[in-house]
């Protein structure tokens, strides 16, 4: 089964944003962001687009399957 890879952590570092801050911006819990960063949870299209919008990038840039 393909594994979710994400650049969430790198983008957070660039924007100097904490997990809790990102979670609040996209309306989820911090636990969800932690799991997303570890590739343990595949987000809905809406959440993926909301996160991409926060960083001003695309869903494809943030998330990929390997």
């Amino acid at each position: 089964m393909p594994e979710l890879k994400t650049k969430l952590k790198e983008y957070r570092a660039i924007f100097d944003m904490k997990q809790g801050e990102l979670a609040e911006l996209v309306g989820v819990r911090r636990e969800t962001i932690i799991r997303l960063e570890k590739g343990q949870y595949v987000p809905s299209l809406k959440l993926a687009m909301d996160i991409a919008a926060v960083f001003g990038t695309t869903v494809e840039e943030l998330f990929s399957f390997e």
Partner: peptide
Amino acid sequence: FDRTPESLGGDE
């Protein structure tokens, strides 16, 4: 199901 151990990489 919802547990998130610190080893998963919380930053706060």
